[in-house]
Design a protein around this nucleic acid. Structure first.
Lengths: 141, 141
DNA sequence: TCTATAATGGATAAAGTTGTCCTTTATTGC
DNA sequence: GCAATAAAGGACAACTTTATCCATTATAGA
């Protein structure tokens, strides 16, 4: 349902949120170790997050990655959409003309389900999922 | 989010529901024309639906496919699960021991979202999406 | 029993996703 | 400027999903 890449992106953002410290940058190797995201694949994912403006990168010595803003201002939906945009059903997949202005009940129901998911993810912040009483800490053994 | 195969399966089930007529069987070519599912791929999908016991097939002359039961007794979730099972997050994707008995808030939230989807699809029947006032008919131009 | 019909199952191809590696570009400190 | 460092970007490999095709199996009717 959610792609592997989306799962990886969530872990990377959460790791960066947990290690956030002013403007300190973290290399992709260190992030990979902390998230178990394949070291060679992680840079692609971080780059998508940079392009979505959720993460800031800096090249060269002392460079690396950091969150662009407070975890309270990043939603799970923004993370998803950065790497694997949630595709709503905007138009009839069969391209039927009669369904152009309005989806049939089948696709309307499927899209309503997607809308629910979108809303749930939009209303959850990274801050919220960092720690909750009686839950184990993300990424921590 | 929902796979192409799941979309095709929905169309095929809906088509069979709309054409249901006692024990009449329909060939995959006719169903393909009515659903725009690729003719060579549709038999695979119908076969999955047969294995899930939502559809009954019969070989040979006069054979084909038909629904195994009333559309009111088939949920969208059953159709999904027949071809592309909705994967809940049952255990920590990082295999962290500390998350064995309980998911961390990140995965708990993602799984809660999947649970929502599961519930919504489980509570929608094929009968419900066949026709609704002020909606265009499924599959019909 | 023979022929026509239609699903089943397996092999294969095409496309998309995930993962690896290497070169290029940018940045820092000497 | 030079060397070391680290992200960006592109080529490519492995795997999965989607799609095609063909041989096999089952059924009906003559």
């Amino acid at each position: 349902m959610f792609s592997q890449t989306a799962e990886y992106a969530m872990r990377a953002i959460v790791w960066l949120a947990e290690h956030r410290d002013n403007e300190k940058m973290f290399g992709h190797r260190e992030i990979s170790r902390g998230t178990k995201v394949p070291e060679s694949y992680l840079p692609k994912i971080l780059n998508s997050l940079v392009k979505a403006d959720l993460v800031i990168s800096k090249r060269g010595a002392g460079g690396g990655f950091r969150l662009s803003r407070d975890p309270v201002a990043i939603s799970l939906l923004q993370v998803m959409n950065a790497v694997d945009p949630l595709q709503r059903i905007h138009s009839c997949p069969l391209k039927l003309k009669a369904h152009k202005s309005q989806l049939c009940p089948v696709h309307a129901k499927l899209d309503a389900t997607l809308a629910e998911v979108e809303k749930t993810l939009a209303n959850s912040t990274i801050q919220e999922v960092l720690y909750q009483p009686n839950f184990p800490h993300p990424l921590r053994e």
